[in-house]
């Protein structure tokens, strides 16, 4: 097995697959994460906003969104999005990223919502009673308190997202395209060096490196926000 690992590492072509996969995995995760965070934030705010006639339809849409995207497998969503909804030539990787982002947004919105509802109800009342609008109170008073509960949950979600993106190759991937991620690299390497364990260990290490970096990053962010907690 060590021989196989060394064989992989000594072939520039195979190593370049891994490097490509490494950066594609990170890139896909990053863009999906940004999309998911944005969507999740908006959806959480809509769900938590007081019910009035303007919010009725948005609330129903957001409720349906989280139900559907948390209630069905992401692989199924990926196939539907890539082969049915966005069956446009050359759009495959973007449709996939869109799927991961939208899927992740559903989970992120629940994390944010849980964080916000964990803040004492009296805080909103105090803000409103002073004359702040609902949104102003949310931004100035509730969110700064909720953020320290939200960040660990979102961190978990981002780590899960990285690994979730490993199915992107299922819609077809060739080296040089965005869908060629770490997992796809492993299968391609296998064709030259037919040892799953060897390529699996190498690619697994790559994933671990990324996850470790993410954990470190999340810790830093957590610390930064814990500063104004007494």
């Amino acid at each position: 097995m060590f021989q196989d690992i060394i064989e992989i590492l000594s072939s520039w072509e195979l190593v370049s697959y891994m490097i490509q996969g490494f950066f594609n995995s990170i890139l896909v995760t990053l863009i999906s994460a940004l999309l998911g965070l944005f969507l999740g934030f908006v959806v959480a705010i809509v769900k938590i906003a007081p019910a009035n006639k303007w919010m009725k339809v948005p609330k129903i849409i957001c409720e349906a969104y989280t139900t559907v995207f948390r209630g069905t497998p992401v692989a199924l969503q990926l196939f539907i999005m890539v082969f049915a909804v966005f069956a446009i030539p050359g759009f495959k990787p973007y449709a996939a990223i869109l799927t991961f982002g939208i899927n992740s947004g559903a989970y992120v919105s629940e994390s944010i919502r849980a964080g916000i509802t964990s803040v004492d109800k009296g805080q909103m009342e105090a803000g409103r009673a002073m004359g702040f609008t609902w949104l102003e109170t949310m931004i100035r008073i509730i969110l700064p308190q909720a953020i320290k509960n939200i960040i660990p949950a979102i961190g978990n979600e981002m780590i899960a997202l990285l690994k979730e993106t490993s199915i992107i190759g299922w819609v077809g991937s060739t080296p040089g395209t965005l869908t060629f991620d770490l997992n796809a690299a492993a299968s391609t390497i296998y064709r030259t060096v037919p040892n799953y364990l060897a390529s699996g260990i190498l690619v697994g290490c790559c994933y671990l490196i990324v996850v470790y970096a993410m954990v470190f990053l999340i810790k830093c962010i957590e610390k930064r926000f814990a500063k104004n907690e007494r």
């Binding site: 004492d120 009296g122 805080q123 009342e125 105090a126 409103r128 009673a129 002073m130 004359g131 702040f132 100035r140 008073i141 700064p144 308190q145 104004n228 907690e229 007494r230």
Partner: peptide
């Protein structure tokens, strides 16, 4: 509401702000 101040049983101070910031925010 700016003309009608309210003091609550549970104080409802903002824990993420200092005393001074609590007072000057509004």
């Amino acid at each position: 509401r700016q003309k009608v101040g309210m003091v609550f049983q549970q104080f409802n101070l903002f824990p993420h702000l200092t005393v001074l910031q609590n007072i000057t925010l509004a």
